[in-house]
């Protein structure tokens, strides 16, 4: 029994290590190439390990492309979208949970139905709208279309519904109005759900590709995704300069992942509330 157990454990660890090496290799490759000298990275046969740390590629990419602007743009856009979605979604979710207005069921149904509309259907007219507003190549054009989220409303409503009803009744008897109840009681109690929505919204905004590709044209307005993928079209003498750019962009995400894996997991699995 124990011998069999030992063998299966060994087998399991071998499988784990092989899978981990395969999955981590592309990221390792990017970082390893980033710290190789240009000659080293273009050797054949390719090198697995850098012989020494060489930061010339990183220096070149910082000099040649506005990589700081890419990161700043992406960060600002994702943060604005996150704040906007959390605000609009908590207001609407509060109304759908606690305020007894007319046609509430109808509006909620309408909100839910918007989740079925794929973003691609709206992209051509939205492009025309943003263009006619003069928002091409600007922050409003990148942010405004994403400030409301039906998914966020749904997620928060499910959470608000679980708050004890007695709390609301007691607050009403004490003469507490809706706005105050929302700000003082509901929002603080819903911090886990708000955090989940925030992580989810931030990740999605950070990873946007098609929309920023359409509405940005100058390098200074590009987001990380567009800026990085356009590096390959630039004429560089060595391709490890491109990978140095990729590594610079990946570093904050990886640090964020290591520090906040738990919150990230909660944010991502929040998307599965009753799939």
């Amino acid at each position: 029994m124990t011998i069999r157990h030992g063998w299966s454990a060994a087998f399991m660890y071998i499988a784990l290590i092989v899978l981990a090496l395969v999955l981590i290799y592309p990221v390792y490759y990017a970082f390893a190439s980033a710290v190789m000298s240009p000659e080293e990275s273009s050797q054949y046969p390719p090198r697995m390990f850098p012989s020494h740390l060489d930061f010339s590629a990183i220096r070149s990419v910082v000099d040649l492309v506005p990589i700081g602007a890419f990161i700043r743009n992406s960060f600002f856009i994702a943060a604005a979208i996150t704040v906007g979605q959390v605000l609009t979604a908590s207001l609407a979710a509060y109304a759908f949970t606690f305020v007894k207005m007319r046609f509430r069921a109808f509006w909620f149904g309408l909100f839910l139905s918007t989740m079925m509309i794929p973003w691609e259907v709206t992209i051509i007219p939205n492009y025309m709208t943003v263009k006619s507003l003069g928002w091409l190549d600007s922050y409003p054009g990148l942010i405004m279309p994403f400030l409301a989220s039906a998914f966020g409303v749904f997620l928060l409503r499910q959470f608000f519904l679980q708050l004890p009803k007695e709390l609301f009744e007691a607050a009403v008897i004490d003469g507490c109005g809706h706005w105050r109840y929302l700000a003082r009681i509901v929002m603080p109690l819903s911090r886990p759900a708000l955090a989940s929505l925030a992580v989810y919204a931030f990740l999605n905004a950070w990873n946007m590709y098609l929309w920023p590709l359409l509405v940005t044209s100058t390098p200074e307005m590009r987001t990380v995704q567009i800026g990085i993928s356009m590096l390959q079209f630039e004429e560089f003498t060595a391709w490890n300069i491109v990978l140095a750019g990729v590594s610079l962009v990946l570093l904050p995400s990886l640090i964020f992942l290591v520090l906040g894996l738990k919150q990230l997991v909660q944010g991502i699995t929040a998307g599965a509330v009753k799939g």
Partner: peptide
């Protein structure tokens, strides 16, 4: 999950 289409595709 830390990777997105831009970075993953370039690598």
């Amino acid at each position: 999950v830390a990777l997105s289409i831009g970075t993953a595709a370039v690598i």
